[in-house]
Design a binder for these strands. Structure first.
Lengths: 218, 218
DNA sequence: ACCTGAACACCGTTCAAGT
DNA sequence: ACCTGAACACCGTTCAAGT
């Protein structure tokens, strides 16, 4: 209804192009380098032009989050044991953030309450409820998993990527236990993800009412 | 050694005063309002004066993180079951961030690899190792807990505090499962913390080698 | 409808200068 | 040593104007 007519005029520049350029710029130079003016320059356009495709900078940031989210999550999730669904969700999110480091801080900063993200949440909570979790517990679980994944990437996203290597360097004789913990090399993002996920899933298993504990109730 | 002489001259303005004013400003008006110029105005001083107490803005941010960390964590932790030590650490961190919302994004953003934070990490990992965890597993545990606490606060720290209330509003008939999950009111920060912490601790208990599983090995 | 250019009120940081 | 003021290279966003 309404407004479906096409205007020729100067053509060029769809919202999609703006978003893709924004993600590319943020991934390449870091979020802190993402400015309306630089983005415009990237698109060979005046800064103010962007305001026709995006409400303002916050709107741009929200759109980036939604864009990356849409690209990361292949929905609806394959059915299966809730543990696999949750792990799959976490890994999809992880891969999306790994592919788009420029979006990590935006994920942490923009709540992203969009129809799409709510639909994903609804689906996940429904699957978990069908697995035997009370709805509220299921919501807590999803929040915990999403928070862990985003938190994981934040740790590695400081403008210098100094976290694990720097700890390893500093953990000398003054910090013998840390040195021991890091003796087999720095802690990688993947191993942190697997560990946290394993612990979280095992922990929530203990919160599952006894009659829902069977993996596939045939 | 060296440089312990006092200079009179114009007196005023210690690094401590700068940090306290910075934390106050960030808590009151939000981190995004924390600028060198506004902070200077707050202290009745020229912006450039601040560069005598802090290397630059990133240095200021790092100092804020350390300042809040020092205020939040009462160390060394009371000995006791590792579960209590970990929960105590999480709650101290939580209280510190609750008291200083302006520091939340900085915690997520500045790695904070300082002698103090490393000493805290060392102590925690040592306690966990004494409880039976391999050092590397212990490190993972601390990372997971710290990440969960910071991630929790980030969710509530978007410039508008729209998260839980907004979800509750939006979860209408289109999202029946979410509406059900939120029927008893919005999910509070405290309940999320307790839930995640319980799950994480229970999960890591399952990773504990069998002979270290006794709570107090007398 | 879509794009532009000038303007406004901000930033962080440098540099040379004051006391 | 500590503080200042002007200056530089940036920001996001408004507004009136072009096509």
């Amino acid at each position: 209804m309404g407004r479906s007519r096409v205007q020729g005029k100067h053509a060029g520049l769809t919202r999609e192009q703006v978003l893709e350029a924004a993600v590319r710029l943020a991934d390449r130079d870091g979020v802190e380098a993402l400015s309306m003016r630089k983005l415009a320059r990237e698109l060979d356009v005046e800064a103010m032009t962007l305001y026709h495709h995006v409400q303002n900078k916050q709107g741009l940031e929200d759109a980036i989050v939604e864009h990356v989210l849409a690209e990361s999550l292949g929905w609806p999730p394959e059915s299966g044991a809730w543990q696999e669904v949750v792990a799959g969700y976490a890994h999809d999110l992880h891969r999306g953030l790994a592919r788009h480091p420029g979006a990590v801080l935006l994920f942490a900063t923009r709540p992203a309450i969009t129809p799409r993200s709510l639909a994903i949440l609804e689906t996940l909570v429904r699957l978990l409820r069908e697995a035997g979790f009370p709805a509220r517990t299921a919501l807590h679980l999803v929040y915990a998993v999403a928070g862990a994944v985003v938190g994981l990437h934040l740790g590695y996203a400081g403008d210098q990527n100094r976290e694990p290597a720097a700890v390893a360097d500093l953990a000398g004789e003054d910090l013998p236990v840390l040195a021991d913990a890091l003796a087999d090399g720095p802690v990688t993002m993947e191993s942190r993800l697997d560990f946290t996920l394993t612990a979280l899933i095992a922990g929530f298993e203990t919160l599952l009412p006894a009659d829902g504990r069977r993996l596939s109730p045939r």
